[in-house]
Amino acid sequence: MPQVEYRGMLLMVPDNDSEFGGYFEAAREHRLVVKKCAACGLLRFPPGSGCPWCTSLDWTWQEVRGKGTIYSYEIIAHAIQPGFRDFTPYPVIIVELDEQRGVPTPHDGLRLIANLVDDQFQPEAEANVAIGKRVDVVFQDLSPELSLPQFRLTDEPPAGSVWQFPG
């Protein structure tokens, strides 16, 4: 069972974790995967046990490119977890992946949470964080057996308009 101490937390992926086991196995190989429904073919994230669109319980893992757009974010100034105090201020972002945007309804998308980090896996400067900016997945190796998907800004121009919190 992969487990690692990270910023004061014991992260673990139990052997019977049919939701996240494969996700973190892939992350260890620096691949980002989501679940693909074996019946209707739609991708989903988080990797729940069944399909929210057709109720099928059959699925396979599907690799995605890991490129996406910042859908929303926050800047955490006051860390709740003591292990994050030396990480503040840090951005938490919601990434909308490029795959399956607006499918099956215009508001749907594959979205996940991460920190926006720089080349050293330190928090990206607040001035550079904005909704609409393009990002790419990177993998933070916490141990030989557990890696955490994170995201970095790319050089690509934003997909549409960019919005940043004025405060």
Binding site: Q3, M9, L10, L11, M12, V13, P14, D17, E19, F20, F24, P46, L112, I113
Partner: peptide, 8 residues
Amino acid sequence: PVAGSQLL
């Protein structure tokens, strides 16, 4: 310990 969907 942090496991399951908390890992997200």
